[in-house]
Measured scan of single mutants.
Amino acid sequence: MEVRTIKVFTTVDNINLHTQVVDMSMTYGQQFGPTYLDGADVTKIKPHNSHEGKTFYVLPNDDTLRVEAFEYYHTTDPSFLGRYMSALNHTKKWKYPQVNGLTSIKWADNNCYLATALLTLQQIELKFNPPALQDAYYRARAGEAANFCALILAYCNKTVGELGDVRETMSYLFQHANLDSCKRVLNVVCKTCGQQQTTLKGVEAVMYMGTLSYEQFKKGVQIPCTCGKQATKYLVQQESPFVMMSAPPAQYELKHGTFTCASEYTGNYQCGHYKHITSKETLYCIDGALLTKSSEYKGPITDVFYKENSYTTTIK
């Protein structure tokens, strides 16, 4: 009895394709271990004539594949690729409408935090270190965002349907971005203890939790000093293409032309909904596939993004 075979390709990165001759009487799992086709788990399936010449994702289970996976995804987590594939199996079914010149995501599976993050990423200057993220990001900007969303979920250790947080998501993504040249110098002034300067680099240099107003941050924000008295913390120097200011959701007025974009969060910790506000020729609110415009805006804002380049204080 002759062994019926077909020729397929296996890959971990969709760049390096490895030619395989597979036995049609055995499952993919018996031949390769966990195997995925377009995100779908085909591990328990036997090869079919229609699979001839198709590319299958496999887990990096030998040295060659491990090197290829690390170079593309910059992670050695053995569960990463499987999590990416199972997320992709959902995100490829989502709709990605162009809204006001940006790629958004039609609401499904509690994905409003991903839509808000995706919209924000198209408006701030950011370059990702893992080629996987950078490639998928370019495709997302062009309207094909399924891979990018699935990668975000995998890097953030999230599953489809789980509630997510924009600030946490951005923080994970910033860790995989090139923020080497970003720098922030802060000064804390206390009447009792004097003053202390701190220099922050990388992710810490672009994120701040405690106030939404970048102007206020430049002037000074009140913080408790270690001595128990009130101290003032203010920005001395900022070198970065953008800054992200966050605070627990509270009524906040966004003035046209003073910011790049913002995240609105309605609801409580267990259950809520994100919308995205962007400042173009007027203010726009993007909620999944829905767009509304207004000249002014007041609502429960939790993150505001500002364009920056270089700032030095005039406070002496």
Rank of each mutant, 00 (worst) to 15 (best):
R4C: 14
V8D: 07
D13F: 07
N14L: 08
H18E: 05
Y28C: 07
G29A: 06
Q31I: 12
F32T: 10
P34H: 13
T35H: 15
D41K: 07
I45Q: 11
H51C: 03
E52Q: 11
N61L: 13
D63S: 13
L65P: 04
T75S: 13
F80D: 01
R83S: 08
M85G: 02
S86H: 09
A87E: 09
H90D: 07
T91M: 02
T91D: 03
K95P: 06
I105A: 07
W107C: 04
A108K: 06
N111W: 00
C112M: 05
L114W: 04
A115C: 14
L121G: 04
Q123E: 11
Y137K: 04
R139P: 02
R139I: 04
R141T: 11
A142Q: 14
G143F: 05
A146M: 03
A150I: 00
C156D: 05
K158L: 04
E162G: 08
E162T: 08
L163T: 14
G164R: 06
D165I: 04
T169H: 07
S171C: 15
L173A: 04
N178W: 03
D180S: 12
D180K: 10
S181C: 12
C182D: 07
R184E: 00
R184A: 10
V185K: 05
N187H: 07
V189L: 06
K191L: 11
T192V: 11
C193F: 03
K201Y: 15
V203T: 08
Y208V: 14
G210Q: 03
L212G: 02
Y214S: 02
E215R: 04
E215I: 01
K219Y: 03
Q222A: 12
P224Y: 10
C227F: 01
A231R: 03
Y234L: 06
Q237E: 11
E239S: 07
V243F: 02
V243I: 08
V243L: 09
P248K: 15
L254W: 00
H256L: 14
T266H: 12
N268R: 02
Y269G: 15
C271F: 15
H273E: 00
H273V: 05
I277Y: 05
T278A: 10
K280P: 01
D287M: 13
D287Q: 01
L291E: 14
T292P: 03
S294A: 13
S295G: 10
K298N: 09
P300L: 11
P300Q: 11
K307S: 14
E308V: 11
E308Y: 00
T312I: 11
